[in-house]
């Protein structure tokens, strides 16, 4: 078992406590987290990534309790073992495509990252030295996926990665995520309400407001 959560609970200030179903996932598995808007599915993702601290319960990745790490340890653990794809690409505009990816080994202190290979697998090698401002939405999202994958994480988390993409790009992005995740043997969790995604990944859990 790679990822295991137990009785996770979280309360946003001034709101009622969210109770999440337990998540259990092996390496190489994929999982969708579904739910209505405001149901707390993104909160669950944040808890899994260690971006938020649960008020109760625990998140264990491999043999490390993510939910009990703090400060620098947590930052570094996240940098090394978790790759996150956000709703928007959020690439750093001042840097080129390649430099954006080079941030990963610097901050995660993982040196053995082959950026050139990664770019060629994404079909982006010709844009390596282009400014990220010149990329299309789909290209930018692919670069952000490359960024999440660059440190060969154990767990890939994607927060509605396709919500602003057209059908063709959605297809590409989902295929890319699945392929790369299985290639590096990472578990893949996608938060979405996008029907196009459901067609590709059968397993899901639903977060419900109680």
């Amino acid at each position: 078992m790679l990822l295991r959560t137990e009785t996770l609970q979280f309360a946003h200030p001034g709101q009622k406590t969210l109770v999440f179903p337990d998540v259990k996932l092996d390496s190489g598995d994929s999982l969708l987290i579904l739910g209505k808007s405001g149901s707390g599915k993104t909160t669950l993702l944040n808890l899994l990534a260690g971006l938020l601290k649960p008020s109760q319960g625990s998140v264990v990745l491999g043999d490390v309790a993510v939910s009990s790490l703090t400060g620098k340890e947590l930052d570094l653990f996240r940098g090394k073992h978790i790759g996150i794809v956000f709703q928007k690409p959020h690439l750093i505009a001042a840097l080129t495509v390649k430099q954006n990816l080079e941030l990963v080994p610097f901050f995660s202190k993982k040196k053995e990252v082959d950026i050139a290979l990664l770019l060629s697998e994404l079909g982006m090698e010709s844009k390596a030295n282009a400014s990220v401002l010149t990329l299309s939405e789909g290209e930018a999202q692919r670069v952000s996926i490359a960024r999440a994958l660059a440190n060969s994480p154990k767990l890939i988390l994607a927060d509605e990665p396709t919500s602003s993409l057209d059908d063709v790009n959605t297809e590409k992005v989902i295929q890319l995520l699945k392929q790369q995740a299985s290639k590096i043997g990472a578990a893949l969790i996608i938060v979405t309400h996008d029907q196009r995604v459901k067609a590709h990944i059968p397993q899901f859990i639903e977060v419900q407001t109680t």
């Binding site: 400060g71 930052d75 996240r78 940098g79 090394k80 959020h90 901050f107 995660s108 960024r147």
Partner: peptide
């Protein structure tokens, strides 16, 4: 702000 958050997500510490 987004850039900073991304850097944090990539493993940067607040001090960095």
């Amino acid at each position: 702000k987004y850039d900073l958050a991304i850097l944090r997500a990539l493993g940067a510490s607040p001090f960095q």
